[in-house]
Amino acid sequence: MSVNENNTIEQLFANYVALLNEYEQLGHDVLDRLVTYKSSEGIEYENICYEIIQHVVNHGTYHRGNISAMLRQLGNKTISTDYIYFLRERADIER
């Protein structure tokens, strides 16, 4: 795959599709990989990489909810812990 200033739109698009396919295959190679690990109790487990990533995301959400609930119980006002709100606030600050 070669990109230079003389490429036509069709050649650039073909290069883009080829690169996209390479990235997609790389993603499948990594995300579908079986991972073996031990828990803190020493028990061995196996999961597919994308399952572990999903767990990490969900677990972070669980803890943010716990913190928010504790703050409310202490009489404090909490803020949204949704990622989309974080992105919107960051975009507002950068403007």
Rank of each mutant, 00 (worst) to 15 (best):
A18S: 12
D82Q: 13
E41R: 14
E51S: 14
N6E: 13
H59I: 04
D82A: 05
I84F: 09
L19S: 06
R72M: 06
Q73S: 11
L19D: 05
L74P: 01
H59G: 01
E89C: 10
H63A: 08
E94D: 09
N7S: 14
Q25C: 04
V56K: 06
D29T: 11
E10P: 11
E44M: 13
I67T: 12
Y62G: 09
Y23C: 13
Q11G: 03
K77G: 07
Y50G: 03
S40C: 03
I9D: 03
F86D: 10
E46Y: 01
S40H: 07
R33S: 12
I48K: 13
V57E: 08
N76K: 15
N76M: 13
Y85A: 08
I67P: 01
E94H: 07
V17E: 07
N47F: 06
Y37D: 02
K38R: 08
F86Q: 05
G60W: 02
G75V: 03
V17C: 02
A69D: 11
M70H: 15
Y83E: 05
D92Y: 13
I79Q: 12
N4P: 03
V30G: 05
H28V: 04
I53F: 10
N21C: 07
V17F: 02
V30Y: 06
T61A: 11
G65R: 11
H28W: 11
N6Q: 14
E44R: 15
E24H: 06
E46F: 00
I84N: 08
S39Q: 00
E22G: 04
A91W: 15
V35G: 04
A14K: 09
Y37Q: 01
G65C: 05
V30N: 07
T81S: 02
N66T: 09
Y50I: 07
Y23V: 10
Y85G: 03
H55E: 08
S2I: 09
R90Q: 15
T36W: 00
Q73D: 14
D29P: 01
D92I: 12
L74D: 09
L26S: 12
Y45P: 01
I84K: 06
